[in-house]
Structure formats: structure tokens, C-alpha cells
């Protein structure tokens, strides 16, 4: 049994944090239906990620529809993979009037710390049908170095 210190939420007051967690809860409730579920609290967006542990390697899938390949950034440092980038509107809305605007644009960044060591030199990535796939082979020994991975 463990003792947990009583911490009234009113005293640990962080309004934005509480708003963010409330929003997360609401998003979870409507996750399957809401089209704008990946719109973040501050206007950013956060793409869906799936991660698999397949004994020899980790495989990450990230839903990034409508991105330009060069605008996807991948970095690996200290066991943490960071996926980031910027999505720009394909159709500049100059002389056009917008009827519906549900897509999210702009910058995003997500990080994932992997549960075991990965060989940074062997990380590969591909982007097809709007899904980024990153393969991270597990390392034989612990290594710590920073590399930048190019999306092929």
C-alpha cells in the first residue's frame, strides 16, 4: 500500500493545465466522431501515432495526411524520437471564399521515448498515403548520440 499526499486541486491551481486536461477528456469522449479532434488547445495540431514493439525493432506510424515530404522533420536524441513539421494549406485562400474549414495547418511536434535502446544509425522512415512509418531497430548495446534522420 502506498500513501498519496492529499492535494486539493484548488490549491494546485493551474487554470490552463486543467483546461487542457478537460479538453483531452472531451476529445476522448467524442474521439470517433469529432472531425477536429486533433486540433490542439492553442491552435496547433497533434497527429495520431501508433507504436509497435516487434522484438527486433520498434515501428511507429503517424497519420500526416496532405503533408509535403520535405516538411516532415525527424530527430532522435537520448532515446527519444521527435516527429515534427509544418503543414501548409495547398490552396491559398486569396480570391477564394471558404465554405468549410476543418483541417488543421501549421506546426506540430510530438516526442516519444522508447522503452529500450535503439540504434540511431539504422533508423529509416517512409511516407506513403499520408502515413509516416518509422522503423527503429533495437541496439545491441547502449549508445547515446544525436542524429538527424532524413525522410526518404
Amino acid at each position: 500500500m502506498s500513501l498519496i499526499r492529499f492535494q486539493p486541486t484548488e490549491l494546485a491551481w493551474s487554470p490552463l493545465e486543467r483546461l487542457a486536461s478537460l479538453r483531452e477528456e472531451m476529445n476522448r469522449l467524442f474521439a470517433s466522431q469529432s472531425p477536429d479532434r486533433d486540433a490542439g488547445l492553442f491552435g496547433g495540431w497533434s497527429p495520431n501515432m501508433d507504436v509497435y514493439d516487434d522484438r527486433e525493432e520498434f515501428v511507429l506510424y503517424c497519420e500526416l495526411p496532405g503533408m509535403v515530404r520535405d516538411k516532415i522533420e525527424l530527430a532522435f536524441q537520448d532515446g527519444t524520437l521527435t516527429v515534427g513539421g509544418e503543414r501548409q494549406p495547398g490552396q491559398p485562400a486569396d480570391d477564394k471564399s471558404t465554405f468549410r474549414s476543418e483541417r488543421s495547418f501549421g506546426k506540430f511536434q510530438r516526442s516519444l521515448t522508447l522503452p529500450s535502446r535503439v540504434d540511431p544509425a539504422k533508423i529509416t522512415a517512409s511516407y506513403t498515403d499520408g502515413v509516416l512509418r518509422v522503423v527503429l531497430p533495437k541496439a545491441e548495446e547502449a549508445r547515446q548520440r544525436q542524429i538527424t534522420v532524413n525522410v526518404s
Binding site: Q33, P35, P65, D95, K96, T98, R100, D129, G130, V131
Partner: peptide, 25 residues
């Protein structure tokens, strides 16, 4: 059950442009 793809619709002089996000399709 299906997922509703987020969509943008713009009007141009000649018509409308509809964009819908369907990752993995």
C-alpha cells in the same frame, strides 16, 4: 462505423475545391 474526414471547401471563380483528409487511403 466510419470516421468523418475533416474537410475544407473553397469557392473559386470556376467552381469549388473540396479537400478531405484520409490518411492510409
Amino acid at each position: 462505423s466510419y470516421l468523418t474526414p475533416p474537410a475544407n471547401i473553397l469557392e473559386t471563380e470556376d467552381g469549388y475545391v473540396l479537400e478531405a483528409e484520409m490518411p492510409g487511403v
